[in-house]
């Protein structure tokens, strides 16, 4: 990580246009190290586009984004070394076992002792005994945990999760939440989470940002937000008030 950086994730006037239409409009966002940042917004607000730019998958139309002080376009290889990513609805390779899937991504991340690393990571997320099962036999919740495992294999500083609880049953959500909190607590990993579920935000996130039509309309720590909107009955009410 480059020194003298206050924020581990920082965007400046980040804009992304498709066919002249701005999906992201001058987004200025900063996330400090060690935060669990909940990125909220309705469908089409630009959350996934933001994550795609931050994970080097997309190039912004204008503006810039930095992860650990590295520009996502000019320093994309350094950024890739610093991040882990779990996209929405990733299915992995059904014909491979959990170990084989994880070893493949470990090798692509440049890890030499991939077998040992897989064991270590699965133990860390408390998901052992499934190493030799094929992914085709896994439930959505189990796949998401494998997804987290592949994303943290190379011990990234920032973990990006795109709608991680989407489609999970309550038990799956609970287990995933525990893993996210453990990663943040024990590995000091900064977590950037796109989500719809306000209840999850309340249970996991330290800071939230609300995106509306490509613009950041609100950013605050969860604690301060709850104080500020103490009159509102629920998080949903707060969300709609912010959106207005």
């Amino acid at each position: 990580m480059k020194k003298n950086n206050r924020f581990i994730i920082e965007t400046k006037s980040l804009t992304k246009k498709y066919d002249g239409k701005a999906v992201l409009d001058n987004l200025n966002l900063a996330v400090a190290e060690g935060e669990i940042f909940g990125f909220l917004g309705h469908n089409g607000a630009g959350k996934t586009t933001t994550v795609n730019i931050l994970t080097t998958l997309l190039v912004p139309t204008s503006g810039s984004a930095e992860i650990c002080g590295f520009d996502t376009v000019k320093g994309s290889m350094e950024v890739k070394k610093s991040i882990g990513y779990l996209p929405e609805n990733v299915k992995f390779y059904d014909n491979l076992t959990a170990s084989e899937n994880l070893e493949y991504f470990a090798k692509l991340s440049g890890i030499k002792n991939s077998k040992e690393k897989v064991t270590e990571v699965l133990e860390f997320i408390e998901f052992t005994g499934i190493e030799h099962k094929k992914l085709g036999e896994f439930s959505k919740g189990m796949r998401q945990r494998i997804g987290i495992a592949q994303a943290i294999m190379h011990e990234p500083k920032v973990l990006f999760l795109d709608e991680p609880t989407s489609g999970l049953d309550p038990m799956g959500i609970k287990k995933l939440r525990e893993v996210i909190l453990k990663l943040n607590r024990e590995k000091r990993m900064t977590i950037f989470m796109n989500t719809h579920l306000l209840s999850e935000v309340a249970k996991v996130c330290t800071t939230i940002g609300v995106l509306n039509h490509g613009k950041l309309v609100y950013k605050e720590t969860l604690e301060n937000m709850l104080k500020r909107f103490s009159d509102e009955e629920s998080l949903e009410d707060i969300y709609f008030t912010i959106g207005e």
């Binding site: 299915k91 390779y93 991504f105 692509l108």
Partner: peptide, 11 residues
Amino acid sequence: NNTLQLILTRP
């Protein structure tokens, strides 16, 4: 499978 996204975010 969306795995292309995963591969392309590896170094």
